[in-house]
Amino acid sequence: MKIAVVRFPGSNCDADAYHAARAAGADVTYVWHRSTDLEGADVVVLPGGFSYGDYLRPGAIARFSPVMRAVAEHARSGGPVLGICNGFQILCEAQLLPGTLARNFGLSFVCRPVTVRVESDATPFTARYRVGQELRLPVAHGDGRYVADDATLDRLERGGRVVFRYAGDNPNGAMRDIAGIASEERNVVGMMPHPERAVETLLGSTDGAAVFALAGVAAGV
């Protein structure tokens, strides 16, 4: 099982994602954003950071990086894709996920652990959790307020595509407390909290580790 961690200029959680995937037993490779292929990876991770300095809007420029064509192709053919924080913003800008991440309600950059509830175990990245399970994961973002029109929100809810929800403390004003969503086929997942920063007891939580435990994914389990 091979995981590609895509690096954009301005990515800064790439090493953390690499570490988390490696710790979960995967073969991990970095893929530069200028690359036009994913080096045969089974799973793609778009890590957090500030690709292109968040110029224009977070993710707006990164979505046109050459690698995104390969990521979209991988997603279309059912391959798992996980976007964390800036990676989530890029997936929305690329229209691989609906809606967008707007400026936080309180305008401040929020950087603290929050509690998120697992709302769906029917994605490759949450298959090892149970619905209703509460995870302690850090958030670190200025633009994390999930926004979409009512029809889109209802479609997400009805389709079981809300994957994570803030439990109690909504740090950014996200609509319906949404912290993470999935694509219609559930193979593309975007989330604002950082599971890769919660994979070691030393870091205060290991609740994020199971996101990267993807051993069965390549075999289609």
Partner: peptide, 8 residues
């Protein structure tokens, strides 16, 4: 295509 976000 780029300058404005059609969602917001």
């Amino acid at each position: 295509r780029l300058v404005a976000n059609p969602v917001t």
